[in-house]
Amino acid sequence: MFDEKVLQMLLEGIRDTLYMTFFSAFFGYVLGLPFGIALYVTKKDGLRPNKVIYGIGDFICNIIRSVPFLILLIVLIPFTRLVVGKSYGSTATIVPLVICAAPYIARVVESALNEVDAGVIEMAKSMGASIWQIIFKVLLVEARVSLFTGATITTGILLGYSAMSGTVGGGGLGDIAVRYGYYRWQTDIMVVTVALLIIIFQIIQNVGSRIALRLDHRKR
């Protein structure tokens, strides 16, 4: 039904979309995971309560999450250019995606850690564990199922956002859907791209859920 050119374009779209999604998720976690741990540690009744640090972190988190993604994308153009050397294309899109995802990931991490039983943390303290040991040997281990589920949800959201960023020259399936489907009235191409996005989303969600289940030793 499509000629080779269109197929080639769709394949490249899939590649770009996956590239943007997974790289932004990865770098989002590089920033968001320590950020989330810091929020957890410094919160009231945390391992090292610190009103100032928590207050600042909490504020930054809320501010970035309040700004609409498209606005963030545009505001960050100079910064993006500074980091990757240009402001358009898949690689450039990863920068605002990471900035957008990091505070969201921080919250996901914070809430996953909040679910760890306070008694287990007390146990670790009673055994003489340091804060770092509690973080790496207790919190991240015991919360791993929540953390993984959170990562799956985050990746799904980034897939959607990467499609949105396609409208401003980001490339990927979202870009194709808008350019061909919306501007050129080629409904068939639009339908195919949307279907591809749905399939990719399903795969991410299913694989994520399955791994999370396998990681969990709590109920058997």
């Binding site: 039983d117 008694g119 287990v120 007390e122 009673s126 055994m127 040997k137 281990v141 990681l215």
Partner: peptide, 27 residues
């Protein structure tokens, strides 16, 4: 100073062996 609790406070994601290894790992 060892301590045990009413609700055991075992690490749910680790097996019995690894739970016992926990304080040794910390040390």
């Amino acid at each position: 100073i060892g301590m045990i609790f009413q609700s055991f406070h075992l690490l749910e994601q680790k097996n019995a062996m690894d739970n016992v290894c926990f304080p040794l790992e910390i040390a």
